[in-house]
Design a protein around this nucleic acid. Structure first.
Length: 425
RNA sequence: GUGAUUGUAGCUCAGUUGGUUAGAGCGCCUGACUGUGACUCAGGAGGUCGCCGGUUCGAGACCGGUCAGUCACCCCA
């Protein structure tokens, strides 16, 4: 018994009318990036596995267990892009972009991670993100946060909250690590099994544990702010001042710890209650060491990634997408002769109208054609039957006002002009 | 990878302690209305009950496996 072929686990088909929402968001994003002076980068959907091992971090979950990795026929180890930052940096280095000074780059497209699907988490997901490379100062941090926040703000999503934190740099992070170890070690036996295992390897990660056993110790843990070095503190304070100055609300959340190895200093997340357990719609921060670790010059960088699926879920939760207005015209030809006359007119309308032009080609009654026009969301119907053919005219019906008017039947060009004149602006 | 839960028409769901030909609403098609779409009424099409196996005289119902959805853990967008 051959079973039906379905989309692979954790993937989804995007069909009309849902795809129209994607297009709308995508064009909003392209416009936004443009206004901030960012240029789009498109990279291959797959890369050498090595790129992600080095760029994302060997000990991260992404590299350890979530990559779609395979060997190609040339015996190369290939991985489907699980995140965008490493490929974008690889491309920029490969084409020597950083020799030309600071770069503002953005991307939008799919990523692939082998995970158990759940709300807001898929095996193929889509991300929009930016990378601002070459500026070490807090102005760049502000710029990328402002860009992300602008997308939230213009879509009137009001349950989104910007969380920021600083996780220090090479100077102060070792001190913080020590402070955390000193804090947790005495309580080792009371911690969750998972946290006990993690403590020595990556104590920072204990901070975002949700386990009730850990909660009391996490809450009393020292915050990074208490050990930040002067340079990091200044950077963080300046960022906060900038955010206040341009009116972006935020909370300092000392428990924001990002999962990828390459972050330094600023980390931030935009969090929404609409997303269930996967509450982060946008995550990012500064990663001053990444470019150098990929073999490039020692340039600082800051950026974020934003989940398109999750963003659309937030839009759903924010509610009320207004019914789209009717637009376009449906040509209705009753019988072969009428169709023959109408086809060139439709072609002309499609050239000049700039709105949808529909036509059904089957022999159905007028009723069925009008129903079809209604379903298509057309504003007008252009009707040609045997009566009209005999009289040399057409009926232009306004499906919203439910009123008819008659037009002279002429060449496609004449009719198109008449239709435009008759009310299609 | 771990756990919970659900798979019956295009969609949302009924289906009594296992018992003949599996139902409803919405949608779709046709007609009432021989040429005017949102209402009304009447018909109609559409299902190997996710898949495989087992128990039974008999399974959509029970059992096992498997696949998929959903949610949570882990982790992240």
């Amino acid at each position: 018994m051959s079973s039906k072929i379905t989309a692979p686990r954790g993937t989804q088909d995007i069909l009309p009318p849902q795809s129209a929402r994607w297009q709308a968001l995508e064009s909003q994003i392209h416009g936004l990036a443009r206004r901030f002076g960012y240029g789009e980068v498109r990279t291959p959907m797959f890369e050498s596995t090595e790129l992600f091992v080095r760029g994302v971090g060997e000990a991260t979950d992404i590299v350890e267990k979530e990559m779609y990795t395979f060997t190609d026929k040339g015996d190369r180890s290939i991985t489907l892009r699980p995140e965008w930052t490493a490929p974008v940096m690889r491309a920029a280095l490969e084409h020597n972009l950083f020799a030309q000074g600071p770069q503002r780059l953005y991307y939008i497209g799919p990523i692939f991670r082998y995970e158990r699907p759940q709300k807001g988490r898929y095996r193929q997901a889509h991300q929009f993100g930016v990378e601002c490379v070459g500026f070490a100062g807090p102005e760049a941090d502000l710029e990328v946060i402002a860009l992300a926040w602008e997308l939230v703000r213009t879509n009137a999503i009001d349950d989104a909250v910007l969380n920021i934190n600083s996780i220090g740099d090479d100077v102060c992070r070792p001190h913080y690590r020590e402070a955390l170890l000193a804090h947790f070690r005495p309580h080792l036996a009371s911690l969750s099994a998972e946290s006990q295992r993690r403590l020595e390897r990556n104590p920072l990660r204990l901070l975002d544990s949700k386990d009730p056993h850990d909660r009391p110790y996490v809450e009393s843990a020292p915050t990074f702010e208490s050990v930040l070095c002067d340079a990091c503190r200044e950077h963080f304070d300046a960022l906060k001042a900038y955010l206040i100055a341009i009116g972006i609300p935020f909370v300092v959340n000392p428990r924001i710890v990002r999962g990828l190895d390459y972050y330094t200093r600023t980390v931030f997340e935009i969090i929404s209650g609409a997303l269930g357990s996967q509450s982060t719609v946008c995550g990012g921060g500064r990663y001053d060491g990444l470019v150098a670790s990929l073999g490039g010059p020692d340039v600082p960088a800051v950026g974020f990634g934003l989940g398109i699926e999750r963003f659309l879920m937030m839009l759903d939760a924010a509610g009320s997408q207004a019914e789209p207005a009717r637009s376009g015209i449906q040509a209705v030809g009753l019988g072969v002769q009428a169709r023959t006359v109408l086809v060139p007119i439709v072609a002309e309308l499609r050239r000049r109208l700039g709105q949808p032009v529909y036509m059904d080609f089957d022999d159905r009654k007028l009723l069925a054609h009008l129903k079809s026009a209604d379903r298509n969301g057309a504003r007008y119907a252009l009707i040609l039957g045997t009566d009209e053919l005999a009289k040399g005219e057409l009926i232009l019906r306004d499906l919203e006002a439910r009123s008819d008017r008659r037009l002279a039947l002429g060449s496609g060009r004449d009719v198109a002009a008449a239709v435009v004149e008759a009310g299609m602006r």
